[in-house]
Amino acid sequence: MSIQHFRVALIPFFAAFCLPVFAHPETLVKVKDAEDQLGARVGYIELDLNSGKILESFRPEERFPMMSTFKVLLCGAVLSRVDAGQEQLGRRIHYSQNDLVEYSPVTEKHLTDGMTVRELCSAAITMSDNTAANLLLTTIGGPKELTAFLHNMGDHVTRLDRWEPELNEAIPNDERDTTMPAAMATTLRKLLTGELLTLASRQQLIDWMEADKVAGPLLRSALPAGWFIADKSGAGERGSRGIIAALGPDGKPSRIVVIYTTGSQATMDERNRQIAEIGASLIKHW
């Protein structure tokens, strides 16, 4: 067993022997301040990774656009098919120029040779490549099948209805392509620590998230040296922004954090800054 596999296998073990965790309302004060600064709703939840206990939450059962955070769930569904012998990570998928959609920095470079399922998941999570996500959605049967996968996990809230990039439209009061912070946090925890996926697939999923290259201005910008984070960000229309993450000190994750916002007129930089400040408060009061 590799060191990384050992780390993920012992996530519940280490967490069980940690000192009790206590909620700190100071972080919620910052979440509410972010709402004021952005002029928009902000949803927040913080779960203990081992027990699933909610440590703090704000608007945990209000719907927010998922945006690209759905790509972690998508690759979880792909990995479940791999575990069941219905898919192979090494299978190569070929596609054409007509398949390319807006923001496809990886797939646009491989029109000639195609990409493997493993490479597509890596591109979808680490670079948020939209064509990679659409190609992977095709392998599982489309958005409705991802929703069905989530329902089978016990998540009857999260739903995907459309493809990239239309799913980022974020129309107010439109339930399409949305989740709730509580539902997303619980589902992410199941994917990373539950028995739904094999140990190898859980490790692969967290490795992809740990290698995320496009979430630097968010929670990662607030992390002290030595902290662990595996995350996936999302951005959408109407001032929408979000991030889902597993993080913790001492090089291992111990909490799940989900943050979503929508309806702001603020710039992307300002949305990023507010999420980073929430992260800084979380870490300060850990």
Rank of each mutant, 00 (worst) to 15 (best):
H24I: 09
P25N: 14
P25M: 14
V29G: 15
K32L: 12
D36F: 12
G39C: 08
A40S: 11
V42N: 01
E46N: 12
D48F: 03
D48L: 04
S51T: 14
K53S: 14
E56D: 12
S57M: 11
P60K: 12
P60M: 15
F64V: 04
M67N: 14
S68L: 00
T69W: 00
T69L: 03
G76E: 00
A77F: 11
V82R: 07
G85Y: 08
Q86A: 14
E87G: 05
Q88F: 13
L89I: 09
G90A: 13
G90L: 11
R91N: 09
S96D: 14
N98Q: 14
D99I: 08
V101Y: 05
V106P: 03
K109Y: 12
T112L: 14
G114W: 05
E119Q: 12
S122G: 14
A124E: 03
A124D: 02
I125A: 03
M127W: 13
T131E: 05
N134V: 00
N134S: 03
I140D: 00
G141S: 07
K144H: 14
L146F: 11
T147L: 06
A148I: 15
F149Y: 14
L150I: 12
L150W: 06
N152I: 12
D161E: 07
D161A: 06
E164R: 01
P165G: 06
E166W: 12
L167P: 03
E169W: 10
P172E: 13
N173R: 11
E175N: 11
E175M: 14
R176P: 02
D177I: 01
D177L: 00
T178S: 10
A183C: 09
M184W: 00
A185T: 03
L188R: 01
K190L: 15
L192S: 05
G194P: 10
E195Y: 09
T198E: 14
L199V: 13
D207H: 13
G216T: 08
G216F: 07
L219Q: 04
S221C: 11
W227Q: 02
S233E: 00
G236S: 07
R238C: 12
R241T: 06
A245K: 03
A246C: 14
G248D: 02
K252A: 13
R255V: 06
V257K: 02
V257Y: 04
I259L: 12
I259S: 02
Y260R: 02
T261E: 07
G263F: 05
T267W: 06
E270D: 15
W286G: 02
